[in-house]
Nucleic acid binder design. Structure first.
Lengths: 350, 350
DNA sequence: TGTAATTTCGTGTGCGCACACGGCAAAAAT
DNA sequence: ATTTTTGCCGTGTGCGCACACGAAATTACA
């Protein structure tokens, strides 16, 4: 049934050690027998036994994690990390070693420094969040040269040789938001798109969310008559936001729906609650506590989750599958766009 | 770092064989040394190495699957099965043996017969879908006596000693449907709840979905003024359904939303399309092809997925975690209630 | 032709565990 | 007092693989 190294060796008329050397490209095998062994390996569909392999192997699988660190103010990158660790403890038995190289997402120099440290660690694979496009590209190139596998999470750089990308299709998520609002408002309504203090690591996401949001009516319903108004708010402080919203409501009456392109939707919810405008459809991103509060109170109608935890989890599992199981992942692993409302919230809270 | 049997043996002043006998309750150990070894095992937090264990063990982990078989007309039970096999091939290396015992969900006698066969197989664990309450209860009791672990999927019997239940919270899913329709219609609207040809294995689900649906307004919004009308259609044939719907629309004008409590929502969609009533909010269950068609055409607004594939998948993973990894699962594993619309459909299709 | 250097290969050990077998004592039977 | 039984325990082997070591075969060189 199962083909072992010994079986291959017998058929090739050599010893197990020779087959082993062929499998690991460790040299010290004549070209002639190498060809022969390789032929038999393929012919017999040899698959190494992972259990025996990791049991016998002394070296762990080293994975470097190169993402921004999180702070009390910027919680975002906490979840991918815990997702990685959760996956790690599930795969614990397989000798996986995770090492963090967390950088300041607002300091390019720090990224470069931490990237260097990551390479010096001599990992087998790198999980990286590409905040700095140019620098990450260079970093991935260096990985490629050193034979280090690399995968990008959250936003895609699509470097050649990249193992996979794990993240959300932001454009689709924008379309989902549009469909939700379209469903909730009457025809010929005014809809507001609010972008608040776009943070560095989500900048391209936000643009694509907006694109998707517009695309929904552009494609499906040119004559829908929806009027879409843009509002960009530079600072994430409530007084600032309140002023901007007040101005906008003054300028445009009868706004029926609001789409907030990032997690700051709770600020808008606060404003709507304070001004008794809870009937306005409100859709935004991310299951963070202030958002959940307004989801439960009914001010926020829907939240779209980026599932950061799952992103980290899937990233590590992918590394494991590739390097231990020799399973090639699909080039893109798009996280499902979950629609969260008050009534299904409970099943998504971990 | 890692504690091995040998380490325990050294500390206890015995040989590895003795420790092994203690671990596996294989007897032939004096009570005195048994106590001592057990003490050291706990003190040192001994955790067996799964890799070495399965490598050395000759016996596979035997899992019996006792669910209804699927037919071209009744596709439902196909997906849990493939979910189980997907999990199995992922855990392939750990010597897991899955054996199907598929019964006719409309023949109680067949269930009893297949249940017997399942027990004769002498499995380590059973994954069962409890269609017949009384008979499944007896079956689970027999499992309990024989030391066979058992878990129920899709609908919960909550037998004492049950490893876990994997399935959806039907009541919550009804509330989700209610919230969606509430979001899409105006205040003081008429809403129709349609139940079509309730099949045996989903009967209790359907009742609880209805309960949840009503509960939404009962709790949140007593003065909402929504009028909810019930329509039960006994036969799943389009002419029959058409007649019933025509009568209802004749009796009640201005119906704004329809909730179909099972996967037959496509039949209602067909009717709405034929009678140019696509503007009515339509929500139903399950990602089957006819439903997907109407979701894409816009007649169905939302589908709620039972995620049958994931149910099977999780069930087998749970068995594995318990029996191989010795990890106790939570007593209930509720599948998230995913809201599927046209724009996020693609990420959920596997 | 003989010796050294190099290539090529086989053997052995260990990873941590399961399990069979056999040994050695004390207890029981004769 | 001797066999026989029984309880209790240690040892050894194998699971499939990685890797070190050393042996044999080949080549290079004097």
């Amino acid at each position: 049934m199962k083909v072992r190294i010994k079986d291959i060796a017998d058929r090739a008329g050599v010893s197990a050690g020779t087959v082993d050397r062929v499998i690991h490209n460790r040299g010290e095998v004549s070209e002639k027998t190498r060809k022969r062994v390789i032929g038999i390996l393929k012919e017999q569909h040899y698959e190494p036994d992972i259990l025996a392999r990791t049991l016998a192997s002394r070296h762990p699988l080293k994975v470097a994690v190169l993402i921004p660190f999180h702070t009390p103010e910027n919680w975002f990158w906490k979840k991918p990390l815990s997702g990685i660790y959760d996956a790690c403890s599930e795969l614990n038995h397989f000798k996986i070693e995770v090492r963090e190289f967390l950088y300041d997402q607002f300091a390019k120099g720090d990224f470069i420094e931490k990237a260097d440290e990551g390479l010096n660690y001599l990992p087998d694979a790198v999980i990286a969040a590409p905040v700095y496009f140019q620098e990450t590209t260079e970093f991935f190139s260096r990985c490629s040269e050193s034979g280090i596998h690399f995968i990008s999470v959250n936003s895609n750089i699509d470097h050649p040789g990249q193992l996979t990308y794990v993240g959300q299709d932001s454009r689709s998520s924008g379309r989902v938001a549009a469909q939700l609002i379209d469903f909730g408002v009457l025809k010929d309504s005014r809809i507001l798109v609010v972008s608040i203090a776009m943070d560095k690591d989500n900048y391209s996401h936000i643009l694509r969310r907006e694109e998707g949001f517009r695309e929904f009516w552009g494609r499906n319903n040119k004559a829908s008559g929806m009027e879409i108004i843009n509002l960009s708010i530079a600072k994430d402080s409530y007084p600032y936001i309140r002023r901007a919203l007040t101005e906008t409501f003054h300028k445009y009456d009868s706004i029926a729906g609001i789409f907030v392109t990032n997690s700051r939707v709770y600020q808008v919810a606060k404003y709507l609650q304070n001004t008794s405008r809870e009937d306005i459809c409100l859709v935004g991103y991310d299951l963070i506590n202030p958002n959940i509060k307004y989801l439960n109170s009914g001010t926020i109608d829907f939240l779209i989750s980026q599932k950061p935890h799952e992103q980290g989890y899937k990233a590590l599992v992918t590394v494991f599958n590739k390097l231990k199981m020799n399973k090639q992942p699909s080039p893109e692993q798009l996280i499902p766009i979950d629609i969260i409302c008050k009534e299904n919230l409970c099943c998504y809270q971990v």
